[in-house]
């Protein structure tokens, strides 16, 4: 138990994370938390979904256990498994079980990447039962009121095969995220990237230009996260004409013509 407590303490967010609300997402999330409803966050990469969860965890004073889902992630990876130590088998809780037992927030990032069997295990946890069955132990763990389940996915580049099933989607309160409006995004870049307002505005304009390239074959344009990274490189004395290709252009594509187009956008703007 002591070990579990120490483990959970690592997931507590002590300092208030910077989060600029651009709508009613905090109010909705608070209401969902009070009613024990799970959250589904949708939105493009780097638009602030994870930061929002960190902010909620700080606000609710709950530990935040984040699981980055991948195509090898199985139910056992989430719920737990028996391990052998010194010739003896013992049970080790997975991150989901740990979060349920402790009344933490469990955030399954990019849920559609995980194996299909994982969605089955979250179903009873995501509806009014709020229970986690641990088949291998024959145990049914009821989630305390403090527990919250949140999942995220990016509708922009998920394939049909990797879409969420309606039976899963319809258990969640959905919050749709997008890149903030230019003035808000500039404020975020200014604050997080440590650049002046004028430069932040130009970076946001640059990102906006790259986000228009879907018809040209660019799956997603520059995220707010990338803009912040440019700011951080600039703070380290890197020239803007070097920072933009390094932090944005090269991170977006390998296509020579798109690379050239994005480089030309940058050289026109800066």
């Amino acid at each position: 138990m002591e070990k579990d407590r120490l483990q959970l303490d690592e997931h507590r967010i002590v300092d208030e994370p910077y989060y600029l609300s651009t709508g009613s997402e905090i109010e909705v999330a608070e209401a969902a938390y009070r009613e024990g409803l799970p959250l589904l966050l949708k939105g493009p990469t780097g638009c602030g979904k994870t930061r929002f969860m960190q902010y909620l965890a700080w606000r609710f004073e709950r530990p935040l256990i984040t699981v980055s889902c991948h195509d090898d992630l199985s139910t056992s990876d989430l719920v737990g498994r028996y391990l052998i130590r010194a010739g003896e088998a013992f049970w080790a809780d997975g991150p989901l079980t740990l979060a349920v037992r402790a009344g933490a927030i469990c955030y399954l990032d990019e849920i559609v990447e995980a194996r299909k069997d994982t969605t089955v295990v979250i179903h009873p946890l995501a509806d009014d039962r709020r229970e986690l069955p641990i088949e291998k132990r024959g145990e049914l763990v009821s989630a305390p009121a403090e527990f919250m389940l949140a999942v995220s996915y990016n509708p922009g580049y998920q394939s049909v095969l990797k879409d969420l099933k309606p039976s899963t989607r319809q258990r969640f309160v959905s919050l749709s995220f997008d890149y903030p409006a230019p003035e808000f995004e500039a404020e975020i870049v200014c604050r997080e990237g440590g650049v002046d307002t004028e430069l932040a505005r130009t970076l946001v304009r640059f990102a906006g230009m790259t986000r228009s390239l879907k018809d040209s074959g660019l799956a997603e344009g520059a995220s707010t996260r990338l803009l912040i990274q440019v700011g951080k490189l600039l703070n380290q004395g890197i020239d803007v004409n070097t920072a933009c290709p390094a932090a944005i252009t090269e991170s977006l594509t390998d296509d020579p013509e798109l690379l050239a187009a994005i480089d030309e956008m940058a050289s026109s703007l800066f």
């Binding site: 228009s212 390239l213 018809d215 013509e257 187009a261 994005i262 030309e264 956008m265």
Partner: peptide, 15 residues
């Protein structure tokens, strides 16, 4: 045209 087309589409914010 290979890069100029995406460049103008970036400027225009669309097609």
């Amino acid at each position: 045209a290979g890069w100029l087309l995406p460049y103008v589409q970036g400027l225009a914010g669309g097609r």
